[in-house]
Nucleic acid binder design. Structure first.
Lengths: 246, 246
DNA sequence: TACCACAAAAATGAATGCAAAAATTGGTAG
DNA sequence: CTACCAATTTTTGCATTCATTTTTGTGGTA
């Protein structure tokens, strides 16, 4: 008996979970590693996902790898062409609009449910993060601003007390991760200030536990992010070159 | 539907689609058939999903079947226990609450987006369905009422013009299909009347294209469905016995 | 009779093998 | 030199095989 495999009987994939469980059973590990491999942009958009190479990269046979590919296809991260293998799914502008809107719907829901369930301590924690983020905004520290921003949204989702929602949110977040990353670099000060104001409204509505209002604000917040992201796409100039792929 | 297999090079799983495409490639067909097999309740809750038997049922080898199992696990329909095979995922009361809330969030979003995009013709069609449904309500024709009800909700989702949302909605709808079916049999006249009133509000808000308002109404509509479903669960008396499983 | 140990049987997880389809290469004709 | 076609190579999809693990069944013992 080795040290890597866990011996618990914990179920895998129980809740369409965003890939949290399933570390056991080779296939599960490969799924996670392959997902990361794709999400992190090691393969260019629309590029082929060569089974053979990945097999030796991960040191496994094709069977578990192909199982993972099927799952990633179901998640929408890659697409499978009959007899022509897997490709990294290139997101069209429309795809990105749709994804941001769905994210908006999910965050909107999260806010609504959070108003029902959030504790005072959680609000206090979100407030703390908010002011921390505000500090980075004042200092124009984009990177740390973005990090805290993410955490605030995650806290709201967590406060919704809905594990199904959390897992679904995680899946979609992974799907647009690359885009969000680059959209992040749209250093438009105007949009940034607007986002900051929206975050103040979010916090205010959450404090008052105004569910419908928070739902509205969050949807529009994401809608504005969508606009910013799409504008950024229009004039990319220099696309982030993936860190070289063997 | 044509002769089952389609020869187009259409990608599979392109959008996390709810199983619409992918009829090609044995694996894809098996995925659909197996999903139906589970959703339709041929295997009891928590029951084992025997690979061997299903293989000969479908007349295939274990490889494509196992690929399908992995996907269904990712969708949350079944769960995989390491070295102990697949089981049909039994939904706890909490699971069902979560699922209804997520469905509420998705329909809420659909309504919001529909207000942006719905055409007059689509509204007219939904109105037509609404009055047709009203007729079944008056005649206490539960079955047809439910069918039209489903179609109205689908029309709203379609009017959102968001394919990603549509696919996600379809996946979750499949996940609670069994529950909805039995919840449907909760013939509480009071709840039924309430639902009818809510539908009138939905139609009204859609006509006025009042996005936030419609979002609210749809969420609460689903929340009420959730309450009804959970109450129904509490006193099931006779659980729908699955039509015997070899 | 209840319980535990042990062995046989079955099922799972992963690797390998094989046929078919696609991509690639080489060659030829125009 | 280019366009087109055929043969080779590669890749994909599925079946089969092999090694573990779990489950089942049996017998012995307290």
């Amino acid at each position: 008996m080795k040290s890597t495999i866990l011996e618990t009987g914990e179920p895998i994939g129980g809740g369409g979970d965003g890939g949290r469980a399933a570390e056991a059973s080779l296939h599960g590990e490969i799924l996670i590693r392959l997902r990361d491999h794709v999400v992190e942009g090691n393969i260019p958009d629309g590029g082929r996902v060569p089974e053979r190479q990945l097999c030796e990269l991960f040191g496994i046979s094709r069977t578990p790898l192909r199982e993972a590919l099927k799952v990633l296809a179901a998640e929408g991260l890659i697409e499978l062409l009959p007899n022509r293998g897997a490709r990294v799914r290139a997101l069209s502008e429309r795809d990105i609009e749709e994804l941001f809107d769905v994210m908006g719907g999910l965050e909107s829901l999260a806010g609504r449910l959070a108003c029902e369930n959030v504790s005072d301590a959680e609000i206090a924690e979100i407030e703390r993060l908010h002011y921390e983020m505000y500090g980075f905004y004042l200092r124009s520290d984009m990177h740390n601003y973005f990090l805290i921003n993410q955490r605030i949204h995650e806290r709201i989702v967590a406060a919704s007390r809905n594990e199904t929602l959390r897992a679904t949110y995680a899946t979609f977040a992974g799907r647009i991760r690359r885009v969000r990353y680059s959209a992040n670099f749209a250093r438009k000060r105007a949009r940034w200030a607007e986002a900051m104001r929206e975050h103040e409204m979010i916090l205010d509505a959450l404090r008052r536990r105004a569910a419908s209002e928070l739902a509205d604000i969050l949807f529009h917040h994401l809608r504005n992010k969508r606009t910013a992201a799409v504008e950024q796409m229009g004039a990319p100039a220099e696309i982030m070159t993936p860190p070289s792929q063997l």
